[in-house]
Design a protein around this nucleic acid. Sequence first.
DNA 1: CGTAAGATTTACT
DNA 2: GTAAATCTTACGA
Length: 204
Amino acid sequence: MNLDLSGTALDVAPRLLGGVLISRVGGLSVRVRIVEVEAYLGAHDPGSHAYRGRTARNAVMFGPAGHLYVYRHLGLHHCINVVCGQPGTATAVLLRAAEVIDGEKVAWQRRQAAGVCRTPRDLARGPGRLAVALGLTGEHDGVAIGFEVDGPELVALRSGGGAVPVVRGGRVGVNGPGGDSQRYPWRYHLAGDPHVSAFRAGKV
DNA sequence: CGTAAGATTTACT
DNA sequence: GTAAATCTTACGA
């Protein structure tokens, strides 16, 4: 089943949960099940990078859906977004955490090379860790997303198909006015899944 | 041009 | 629990 990315991040985010992401970076295949995402709505969202307009970094978000927006955070880590919506609307879904279901050995080696990973649970639990496990870096900013498991694209996305228990809550590290982390409840994750990262409120 | 803050992770007290 | 690492963008002088 193909994913429809033409809606806003709020439409797309819940549908990505339970879906499968395949990465073939460097010829090494890693497959993960998405368990946690966050929606970002561009110009209408103070927490979005695109809130204050287009820059060289976030240009991809203003483009058509079905592309990867990868950015470097704090100089050390990368975060992966799926661009959705229409061109000109900078809406995207941040992939925050996933469960590695195939290519665990490759993911483990990448995580060991970049830092320390003690348990399989931590392989892709968190945005930066997920990027490492998948082998995605700043070079992959703007690459097209495929929808076939064995397609030519570097990364591919597939819907999980069935309904999954979704929990909605405040985004991690992002606050609304007055330090209210629940002001924009645009974080979605699978209920009770151990691979979901811990919630942290943003700085006030 | 200089400074502050950020969609984070890791290590140390 | 708290701090440090480290780079890009935004904003004030």
